[in-house]
Deep mutational scan, measured.
Amino acid sequence: SQVHIGNTTFTFDNPEKAQKYAEKYAKKKGLTVQKNGDVWTVE
């Protein structure tokens, strides 16, 4: 599972961890999370 934030990609061994990280980061920065398969993009 991966989380894309700008030009940075974070890889997680667990989809739940990836989703939590993406949502927490997005909330903190006032951004949105797009999910595509097991990839979350914060923008």
Rank of each mutant, 00 (worst) to 15 (best):
F10L: 14
V3E: 02
K28L: 13
G37H: 02
A18F: 02
K20H: 09
T32F: 06
T41W: 10
D38E: 10
A18P: 00
V42D: 01
Y25A: 06
K28P: 04
V42A: 01
N14V: 07
D13M: 09
K29A: 10
N7C: 15
Q2T: 12
K24A: 14
K29W: 15
E16D: 11
Q2G: 05
K28I: 13
H4E: 04
T8P: 04
A18Q: 00
T41C: 15
G6A: 07
W40L: 06
V3Y: 00
D38Q: 06
K20Y: 11
Q2P: 03
G6P: 04
V39Y: 07
A18V: 00
G30V: 00
E43G: 14
G37F: 02
D38I: 05
I5E: 00
K29G: 06
L31D: 00
S1T: 12
V33D: 01
Q19S: 06
D38N: 14
Q34P: 00
T32N: 09
K35S: 05
N14W: 04
K24C: 15
K27T: 07
A22I: 09
T9E: 07
T11D: 08
A26E: 02
G30C: 10
Q34D: 05
Y21P: 00
G37C: 07
Q34E: 08
K35I: 05
G30S: 04
V42E: 00
K29S: 08
F12H: 02
T11R: 07
N14I: 06
Q2E: 11
T9H: 13
V39T: 12
G37Q: 03
T8M: 15
D38P: 07
D13L: 10
A26P: 01
E43F: 13
T11C: 15
Y21G: 01
S1I: 14
V42F: 08
K29F: 15
V39S: 11
S1Q: 07
G30M: 02
D38M: 08
Q19F: 08
E16N: 06
E16T: 10
A18R: 00
A26V: 02
Q34M: 12
G6C: 15
Q19A: 10
N36I: 15
K17T: 13
P15V: 07
L31R: 01
E16G: 07
K17F: 09
N36S: 13
L31A: 05
E23Q: 06
W40S: 01
G37P: 00
T41R: 06
N14Y: 05
T11V: 13
V42T: 03
F12Y: 04
P15Q: 08
G6N: 09
N14F: 04
A26K: 02
V39G: 12
K28M: 13
K28E: 14
K17M: 14
Y25N: 04
G30A: 04
N36L: 12
Y25T: 04
T11F: 15
G37L: 03
Y25I: 13
V42Q: 01
N14G: 07
K35R: 14
G6E: 09
T32R: 09
V42M: 04
A18W: 01
F10P: 04
F10I: 15
F10Q: 07
L31N: 01
E43C: 12
A22G: 00
H4Q: 12
K24N: 14
V42N: 01
Y25V: 12
Q34A: 10
A22Q: 00
W40M: 02
L31E: 01
A26N: 02
N36C: 13
D13R: 04
T11E: 10
G30Y: 02
D38K: 07
Q19Y: 11
G37Y: 02
Q19R: 14
G37V: 03
Y25E: 09
V33P: 04
E43P: 05
F10T: 06
K35N: 06
E43W: 07
S1D: 04
N36Q: 13
Y21W: 14
H4I: 15
V33T: 03
H4K: 15
T32V: 11
K27G: 07
K24D: 15
T41N: 06
V3K: 03
Y25R: 02
N14R: 04
T9A: 06
N14S: 15
V39A: 08
K17Y: 10
W40T: 04
N36P: 02
G37I: 01
V3I: 04
Y25W: 10
N36H: 10
A22V: 09
V42Y: 02
T41K: 06
K20P: 00
S1G: 12
E23D: 07
K28N: 09
P15W: 07
Q19P: 00
F12G: 03
V33K: 01
F12T: 04
Y21S: 01
F12I: 03
S1C: 15
T11M: 13
F10V: 12
T41L: 11
F10S: 05
T11P: 05
V33R: 02
H4S: 09
T8Q: 14
K17S: 14
Q2R: 13
V42G: 00
D38H: 06
K29P: 05
V39D: 12
A22M: 04
K27Q: 10
D13V: 06
V3Q: 02
H4N: 10
T8K: 14
K17Q: 14
Q34C: 14
E16L: 11
G30H: 05
T41A: 04
Q2C: 14
Q34T: 14
G37R: 03
E43R: 07
Q2H: 12
K35Y: 10
G6Y: 11
D13H: 05
V39I: 13
K29D: 05
K20R: 13
E23L: 12
T41Q: 06
T9F: 15
L31P: 00
T8L: 15
E43I: 15
K28W: 12
E43Q: 12
F12C: 02
D38S: 09
V3P: 01
V3H: 01
K24P: 00
D13W: 13
Q2M: 14
L31W: 13
K29C: 15
T8G: 06
N7Y: 11
Q2W: 12
G30W: 03
G37K: 05
K17H: 12
T8R: 15
K29I: 08
T41V: 14
Q2Y: 14
F12D: 05
V3N: 01
